[in-house]
């Protein structure tokens, strides 16, 4: 008997009293104002937000934020390793979650899966029409969308493994800027 069969058999032999699946959980909306909540969460996760009418309007602010740094908008299929040299990577986010500042990115947004992690600084463009109150609405929105890889990303990488002192910039991006567009 293979280990697979043995494990399944062992589990089937245990008579666990049946417990029903509780059904979907309805989140209570935390605040009245999804945008305000999102902005608050961004602050909590050490993220700079640039609010503009449309994406192109963000350039001056980004120039100022990343002086003398090259900003790259990547094509799909770039080689993962070569991304290590990129200073500032710009990508499109799919939607954001107000309660925790998480932004959904998946294979359809990403030039390479490692891109948002390996770049030194990350810029995500997001429409404020694509904000959802809680993570639960986010999964409803995601539905059964098939993707090879997807990530809820909330803020720049960080660690507090040394004496619990917060250090921004662990292995992933050192900083995150979210360009929030009106349309």
């Amino acid at each position: 008997m293979s280990s697979r069969e043995e494990i399944i058999k062992a589990l089937q032999e245990v008579k666990v009293p049946a417990k029903a699946y509780p059904g979907a959980f309805t989140a209570q909306v935390i605040g009245e104002d999804t945008l305000a909540d999102f902005l608050y969460s961004m602050q909590v996760v050490s993220t700079t937000v640039i609010q503009v009418k449309e994406a192109a309007d963000a350039s001056p602010a980004l120039d100022k934020h990343f002086p003398n740094m090259e900003r790259v908008h990547l094509n799909p299929l770039a080689d993962g390793l070569s991304l290590a040299d990129i200073d500032v990577l710009e990508i499109e986010g799919d939607f954001g979650v107000a309660e925790n500042g998480a932004i959904w990115l998946d294979d359809s947004n990403l030039p390479h899966r490692v891109a948002p992690f390996i770049c030194q600084h990350l810029v995500i463009y997001l429409s404020q029409n694509n904000l959802l109150p809680t993570l639960q609405e986010a999964y409803i929105r995601l539905g059964d969308k098939q993707t090879g890889f997807g990530v809820f990303l909330s803020g720049p990488s960080k660690t507090a493994d040394i004496e619990q002192s917060l250090v921004i910039g662990a292995h992933g991006a050192r900083s995150l800027v979210v360009v929030l567009t009106e349309c």
Binding site: A102, F149, V151, L153
Partner: peptide
């Protein structure tokens, strides 16, 4: 609020 990365493989 959530971990920085919640990665779905």
């Amino acid at each position: 609020l959530i971990t920085t990365y919640s990665s779905h493989f």
